[in-house]
Nucleic acid binder design. Structure first.
Lengths: 343, 343
DNA sequence: CTGAAAGCGCTTACAG
DNA sequence: CTGAAAGCGCTTACAG
């Protein structure tokens, strides 16, 4: 139990003593009500309970336990089409365990400051959803043994910090294998930037599938853009206007696939009849595109759920079996892919 | 300052006494270090500070002040295309004021339970982003004077609880006026359900614009669906296949506009040449549609920011001038609207 | 069912 | 700069 002394925040200074006076009972009795002991008369208990509420007394273990039932989820920013799904997974999984989630970004507070906030709040730990973690933040996490889980980091983190991602390489490979299976032999890719671990893995999955099918890699039909619409639109136009245009395009994200769709529309190419488009992500927009996009589904919500489970288990002193967990992707087929046109 | 007694959570029970022993100094000295007094030798201070960190001692005012710098944001669910933007607005505005945001949903905890959590945490207040607030929750909020702000409620709330929304009626009216200005005279609407305050306001904005232009209201080209893609696709097909098809469609949300876009594609209608499509929301997907959608922009992020500002000001005892604030929408013109075909 | 009294952990004015 | 001692707010074993 907490006792309030003469600190700066003495809102509760001598509060139980005042309540005892007001109620005309002894301090002992008030204390017993606070501690929910049974040896207090019903009327006395009621009167004291009322005064406790009225005076705004917060049982310290309520506050303590409330605080220790919090985790912090830090994002680089709260934008992008899949961030919400990750948030949902974290909040849902935490909710099942009666844990609150403090959501924040690194725009106003550095990771270091978030680590301090975690200690100050008495929170159970941090889920970090940013691309890059600085060396000294990593060192601090390991040294102070702060419970931390990284979600889908751009670069490989320290082996001492558990991280969770998806099987980018095999997901991309599967997607391209599907296009090959439909009969496509000229398959372009609008890839992400190579400095991103996920982007590189998807590109290599694409190359692996082509190689296995005995098809050469042609840089002329591979673009490398940010995971966004505008650049993918430009890259799509360039690729589709090229000398030997592809019959299918594999995009490394939904935003890029939508850019390719717009490129096809601008060039008067019908999807999927004249051009098959396969996407990666399967965020909400994939199903709402025109036509609805076939895509490699990333289990964003499950990513958040698993991160929460691992974090809380680490916080309880049970480290995960493996420092790195990769969740499987899933191929979702919709209307944007079909066999290539004949001839 | 807090003193730890023999409660259930006696993690800190006698902690300073132990540290004093370990450091070989008196309890008084340790206490002075905790309170950052100056009359402690540099070496002693350093040794004690190290032990405090090592033992995981949390200065109670850190915890207290950390808790009182929290607000809670409760959503019906964390899905839908604009929820993230509202979250971002709340988290950003809170971050500027150094306030943490606990994010949750009503799926595991009722609003009543969230109100209790707010008291237990000592949080400053609640932002509630759900469509409907039950009578007794409203009563409780007013009676216990809990700082609460409602964001964009489906139904009109109690005048005692501040709420923030957007100018749905005039936004819709402006959108239709724009279509009229382009020369359209046969304008359909895929509206939301009438039980939603926002949906009803948008439908009435549409009707007002038509009336002002001297154009009769024709139920044959007005659909009423949920704010989603599939139903809007069906409604769009029905309206576009009708006897006197429209040259323009105004959709009450981005998801509905995307459904209409797909309906047009299925019927071989080119947008905007053969059919103009105007949307409402302007979430991320609007700019990524094919073609990019003209839309009435809802200031979702600003909605969250404003809710946070109002909440924190209410929490400090300064109620807003008006219990109801409506933020203005903005017309964003892209490639999905143009003049109707001739003849 | 109630409260006087002893005790706990921490804080602080004060002596050295 | 340090600590012995008095004190604070609360808790609890125990007497009635």
């Amino acid at each position: 139990m907490t006792v309030q002394g003469k600190g700066q925040l003495d809102a509760q200074y001598g509060l139980l003593t005042s309540i005892a006076q007001e109620a005309g009972v002894s301090l002992s009795t008030v204390s017993k009500v606070v501690h929910r002991r049974r040896d207090v008369g019903a009327k006395t208990r009621t009167r004291v309970e009322e005064l406790l509420v009225q005076y705004g007394y917060v049982r310290s273990w309520d506050r303590e336990s409330a605080a220790s039932r919090q985790i912090i989820a830090v994002f680089r920013d709260l934008s992008g089409p899949y961030t919400l799904e990750v948030v949902r997974g974290i909040v849902d999984a935490a909710g099942e365990l009666d844990v609150d989630v403090v959501t924040g970004t690194t725009s106003r507070r550095s990771i270091g400051q978030w680590l301090e906030e975690c200690v100050a709040l008495g929170a159970a730990g941090l889920i970090i959803v940013i691309s890059m973690l600085a060396e000294d933040d990593q060192r601090r996490i390991v040294e102070q043994r702060l419970p931390v889980v990284l979600v889908d980091p751009l670069s490989a983190p320290s082996a001492d910090i558990p991280s969770i991602g998806v099987t980018n390489w095999s997901g991309a490979r599967e997607a391209v294998q599907h296009l090959l299976g439909l009969g496509h032999t000229r398959i372009a890719m609008v890839a992400g930037r190579s400095h991103s671990l996920a982007g590189a893995a998807r590109l290599h999955g694409y190359r692996a599938a082509l190689e296995e099918a005995g098809i050469g890699y042609d840089p002329a039909i591979v673009g490398s853009t940010d995971f966004d619409y505008d650049e993918a639109l430009a890259a799509g136009l360039r690729i589709l206007r090229g000398e030997r245009p592809p019959t299918a395009v594999f995009a490394a994200s939904d935003a890029q696939a939508l850019g390719v769709l717009e490129a096809a529309r601008q060039l008067g190419l019908r999807v999927p009849d004249e051009l098959a488009v396969m996407s990666f992500d399967d965020t909400l927009v994939a199903a709402m595109a025109s036509p609805p996009l076939s895509a490699v589904r990333q289990p964003f919500e499950e990513l958040g759920r698993e991160a929460t489970r691992v974090l809380l288990s680490v916080a309880e002193g049970r480290p995960p079996a493996s420092p790195r967990i990769e969740l499987a992707t899933e191929l979702v087929l919709r209307a944007s892919t079909s066999a290539p046109p004949r001839g």
